[in-house]
Amino acid sequence: MGLMRVIVALMLLALPAAAQEKFITLASTTSTEQSGLFGHLLPLFTEKTGIQVRVVALGTGQALAVGQRGDADALLVHDPDAEKAFVAAGHGIEHRQVMYNDFVVIGPAADPAGIAGIKDVGEALKRIAAKEAPFVSRGDNSGTHAAEKRLWRQAGLQPWADKKPWYRETGSGMGPALNTASGMDAYIMSDRGTWLAFKNRASLKILSEGDVKLFNQYGVMLTNPQRHPHVKRDFGMAFVSWITSAEGQQAIASYRIEGESLFFPNAKREGS
């Protein structure tokens, strides 16, 4: 019947010419996508290898879940503890460090908690808690969320467990969380890259930075092809190799916004 033919034609039209294209699906984080790093990096890789990288930007927790289900060929995420557990459970292989950036504590220029210029992030967080100044948390199980909770714990505080009214979990990505913080003049912890690319800052500015504890390590790995035979091992491996190679590392270092480097390459073989 004619109608069926139209439907089939439309379906085919809407499908990309995926079959003959070389590509991998990379589950990654909102911070790498929204900071613009991928826009800089991936064309270089594609030019060299002919392999397209399709990035699905998620929180680290969600990206790992997608990898566990076999829905991505490779992962580039930033939650070292969760990554180790993921590899240990056999979901991922070829895990390597790629780069780091850092987190910064952002807050309203008026700075009611008085943390401007304090390098010790633990001290900054304690002051925010003491003043009960509004603090926006991602609350989405992402790498940034995990890092933020780790820093609170190290400062001896768990405002989420104590259900503090000033501690506001938004359950959203970095950008939406920054929008929320900017709307309510709240403190927030963000990765530097997303912050630098973020436009709706209102009165927000960086108040505390530079503590080694704010170090944010990114790792790359392959979804385990033994669990998911359809995983494009060779293409994925090409990506892992390239991004940890001298050339890939150089490309990371050369990405700057307003003259500032966002990510610092530090690839080395992990483990043994």
Partner: peptide
């Protein structure tokens, strides 16, 4: 929301909102 593959108007809007 893969750039150039599955990015449509609404997901672009969501992304630009994320970027502030």
């Amino acid at each position: 929301n893969i750039d150039g593959v599955t990015r449509v108007m609404t997901t672009s809007i969501a992304l630009e909102t994320s970027k502030g």
